[in-house]
Design a protein around this nucleic acid. Structure first.
Lengths: 247, 247
DNA sequence: TCAATTGGTCTATACATCTATACCACTGGA
DNA sequence: TCCAGTGGTATAGATGTATAGACCAATTGA
């Protein structure tokens, strides 16, 4: 075989090939919209039968990484980002799994006191100091979501500096001893973005956004953050997977 | 299935199970020397047939992660030998400190004249007679390293007989009045072992070895030996401790 | 010595993976 | 309109993976 595919090692060739192509897309060997080489060429390159290569392509198409057009070719897809709603939800993992490059940006931060709604969600007394953070999540340079987070200030004093360094909420929580967290609940609605929101998400006026409200809890069940997130409707689809504990 | 094994996903169950158990050993769920649960129990835990579980175990045994004893059980095998690179380096001390049984074996000896490279390292004139000794170091019966040593012949005439008696280079040097020696320098590279080297180290073809070149000096700073040592990559990790005089 | 426990081997079956070959369907351009 | 290039489908066989059940062999302790 032309490339370093491992046979009989317990990992199917089609999966190894799919991983390889995913990586090449993620690292820019093939850009969004590019046509991949014909199946026959790719099969020759990996030293496998065309059926095996097609199995790999089918997996990539299933994950919306590529789009297959009979007679035309196979193209790198830039379709809507599929955003699964699960108990374990990590923006960076979700984006990476779809062969795109995640990043995060802090837009604003203010220390305020929790109003009734936020306090209830965080299970603290109204008036408790909380961080209010606005952040923008980006995939391949395209804004995906705009979020407002509320986080108990006493428990996470170093929020701003860690987020600024890493661009990751997971890292912020880790830095304060929260090794794992899960989503307790998610509510989804939709509306039209206002001017400021549209501008931040890079959307034309009048664009629809998905609005989610959710609560993350640590392993002990204590809320660690609640947030309201706006997703650009034309770039994202939220996927609720049944069979997972809905909580 | 009792655990989160993925079926039909292109990764064989036996491989997923092997990975899982490997992780549990690495994270201390099972310690070195522990007996793993019986195959029937593990098969039940992972929700697979015992044959499948055994395939996973065979892979772990092949990689020396576990040792399988019929009638007794399956035991966590000793991890990689940690080989610190320090000024004072004594194979027997290092191995003993890790509760393993050291031994050494002389493979070959020849009296030859120093070529340019060896002469430079030993600070003698090119053409000076030197012992060239090949030795194998073993811990708990498992080959760890294969070394070529070059030693000035005039200063250490009784090298072969003393080494054959004691299996220790330290003793050889002592017998010639060198009460102490230290390492002056160590260079480390890596490559694939050739057939003979692999056979002597008991490694499968294509295995990686660490290659170190070093010089030992006596208390006066005079080189007493230089050597090139091959370590079995899968059985040893070299540890460079910072803060020590690197020389 | 015996019985329980543990790993080792064998046979048979089902399904997944991979190969080989052939032919069909769609697209775009000559 | 035709044809070269592309993906889509079908069939058959070889090999890898997983299951099921039965029985053998070594170890250990009663």
């Amino acid at each position: 075989m032309t490339e370093g595919m491992e046979r009989g090692g317990g990992i199917a060739l089609w999966r190894q090939i799919a991983e390889q192509i995913r990586t090449e897309i993620a690292t820019g060997v093939y850009a969004v919209g590019d046509r991949l080489p014909p199946e026959a060429d790719l099969a020759a390159r990996f030293g496998v039968n065309r059926h095996t290569l097609r199995r790999a392509m089918a997996a990539l198409a299933e994950a919306d990484v590529v789009r297959i057009d009979q007679g035309r070719g196979t193209f790198v897809q830039a379709g809507r980002l599929s955003y699964p709603i699960r108990r374990r939800t990590r923006f960076s993992e979700i984006v990476s799994a779809q062969a795109r490059e995640p990043s995060g940006r802090l837009i604003g931060h203010r220390l305020e006191v929790a109003d009734e709604a936020v306090a209830t969600r965080l299970k603290v007394a109204a008036g408790t100091p909380v961080h209010r953070v606005e952040s923008l999540s980006v995939a391949d340079g395209v804004p995906i979501s705009l979020a407002e987070h509320w986080i108990p200030a006493e428990r996470f004093p170093r929020l701003v500096e860690v987020y600024a360094e890493t661009g990751s909420f997971t890292k912020v929580l880790e830095a304060h001893g929260v090794t794992d967290y899960t989503r307790r609940s998610t509510r989804v609605t939709a509306r039209v973005a206002d001017a400021l929101e549209g501008q931040r998400l890079g959307l034309p006026p009048g664009s629809a956004v998905l609005v989610t409200e959710n609560i993350d809890v640590d392993t002990a069940g204590t809320p660690v953050q609640t947030s309201r997130t706006l997703f650009a409707g034309e770039r994202v689809e939220l996927v609720v997977e049944q069979g997972d504990d809905p909580a």
